[in-house]
Design a protein around this nucleic acid. Structure first.
Lengths: 346, 346
DNA sequence: CTGAAAGCGCTAACAA
DNA sequence: TTGTTAGCGCTTTCAG
């Protein structure tokens, strides 16, 4: 197979320890020997075996990223941020899709632990399921960062401030004169879903608008879910004048359903999505959306995790990082096409 | 730290070798001892250290996936397929985003090799750049599968049949009576871009339609690129009656630009995208698209790679797998809304 | 069927 | 400054 440290040591006429010193930039290796060793390494294009290093050092330089579905644009943006921040520090990331399957997430965590990843970034599945595997991580002081709260578990966390995002979005609908405002929630299992619902309700309350339960529609996270929610909206006795959706996909599906029934956006119904997916500004009716800094979430999570890995102080207080969302107002809330168009170009 | 095989051996009153045998389902371990060892393993919840195993076995159970940008829906779908197929066989996947940066892809390959991943799945960057790192992989007989051809390198490959996809799409435009048909190409560096252009041109030639170079617009792969291409289309002396786009994002951006200028889709211009992104069926004017079996590409690539890893015969002839695309005709080609709508629901 | 011994390729005290 | 000596935790002949 390929060269080993012993080969290099032999050729350079030094011990393996010395070569190891050179490899790790150990300051107490003579300048001359270092140069000589380096030359040999270069000449034979020797590359240290990271597996062996990992075993000896008891750290792999690997971090695990567990999300539900990497094909969800939000998660893939987060993954990008994670990978970027990790790559800068020489860490590689192993991904694990749990495909919405709780058992699979548990199995994945087990595998990654056996692989001795130095830490984990986890988007926990559903509320109301058994989270003892996460609790166990905590007990073992295995470094990890969550991307969503788990009730009853105090741990490092990075996420967007959903509630405020939904609040501001709803307030904006009110400001442009809408009063009958509906909300399409996400999956019941998602904590973000509840928080956004809270933000929506708080905004209504603050504006003295009565909450109407028929305006809260259980949705989901995909286009289809939005489409079906749209069908429900159509059938309402009084059509809402504004709808806040769980995410952009839901908003897009919803708009499709409304438009199919001759509903005009935004004249009849104003619509707001969530996430800030790139596509939103290029839709035929550009979508107003609450943008989340997805990539930054990934970066921050990775940085926090690497910090935990590096200073392995036990018993630090968990850090909770909430990143601001940003309301981007576009045509589905009445902005002129020309204006969107400008923003598209810049 | 955690338990080791020695601990288990001690507690079970056997040697480490025996425990190892149990762990690996080695047939010649007595049933009784096996059960006893298993009980101890269970009791102490012992999990073997995969790093140590990897070192001893000279295989990590890791495979590397190198794509340009995991946040591109097409790649994330592929990644999903790869992860799925690998997971089934107990392999984990390390991802590496090259961010369109060639040096970074090279560095990533280097790192993954040092980490001793058992194989690589690579979406090679650009044509016309130096591919000696890939050539080196081949020389070393390091298992890898490509997701796009590299001129001059014979290697295992899995990709969609772009040319035929573009051909059929163009033919469809002709069949619905369009003759002035434009083509928005992808990035010049992408091989798929050329192949799709070929398919487009072949279809025109077959229908005895003169190729007009002004109808070939250099585009890109993102919404913005499509938007700008749309602006160019608008300025043409004779507006094309149909446009084949490099991918769905480009098509969406293009449509936005056309619609901004009062162009009616599909009455004035019919549009076809490529990839089959989920969003396409939910757009206000549902997009006709050439769907690629992205996830299947990932699965097939992983399966092929694992096959190579397993039967390490040297000198096998490279396998080239081309997966069929599927034209999904929708409103941007004149299908009635009601019809799309049905397909949306199913 | 089980155990002893050697080794995977590298790091890390500790001596020299 | 360099080399010696032990491992890291597991697998794998090869005897017994």
């Amino acid at each position: 197979m390929s060269m080993t440290i012993s080969d290099i040591a032999k050729m350079a006429g030094v011990s393996r320890a010395t070569v190891s010193g050179v490899l790790n930039n150990n300051p107490n290796v003579g300048k001359k020997t270092k140069l000589r060793v380096l030359a040999i390494i270069e000449k034979y294009n020797y590359k240290p075996n990271e597996v062996a290093r990992a075993l000896a050092r008891r750290q792999t330089g690997l971090i695990g990223l567990l999300v539900k579905d990497i094909s969800n644009p939000l998660y893939s943006q987060i993954a990008l941020g994670v990978e970027d921040a990790c790559g800068k520090e020489g860490y590689s990331v192993i991904m694990g899709n749990s495909q919405k399957d709780h058992d699979r997430q548990i199995a994945n965590i087990g595998l990654l632990k056996r692989r001795r990843v130095d830490g984990l970034i986890i988007f926990p599945l559903q509320k109301g399921v058994d989270h003892s595997h996460i609790r166990e991580l905590k007990k073992e002081a295995y470094p990890f960062v969550l991307l969503a709260e788990i009730p009853g578990i105090e741990a490092d966390l990075v996420r967007a401030d959903d509630e405020n995002g939904a609040f501001e979005a709803t307030r904006h609908l009110i400001q442009i004169g809408r009063r009958n405002i509906a909300c399409v929630t996400g999956p019941v299992s998602a904590m973000a879903s509840d928080r956004r619902l809270d933000g929506y309700q708080n905004a209504l309350v603050q504006a003295n608008i009565k909450l109407r339960s028929e305006y809260v529609i259980r949705g989901g996270w995909r286009y289809e879910h939005g489409y079906h929610a749209g069908k429900k909206v159509i059938r309402m006795k009084t059509l809402p004048e504004g709808v806040l959706c769980y995410n952009d996909s839901v908003a897009i599906g919803l708009i499709r359903a409304l438009v199919e029934h001759g509903c005009r956006i935004p004249d009849d119904v104003a619509v707001i999505g969530f996430d800030g997916a790139p596509v939103t500004s290029f839709l035929q009716t550009a979508l107003t959306t609450v943008a989340q800094p997805a990539q930054e979430i990934g970066v921050k999570a990775a940085e926090l995790l690497l910090k935990r890995i590096t200073n392995k102080d036990d018993n630090v207080i968990p850090e909770k990082i909430f990143l601001e969302t940003k309301l981007i107002v576009r045509e589905t809330c009445g902005v002129q096409a020309a204006k969107t168009h400008e923003s598209v170009l810049k």
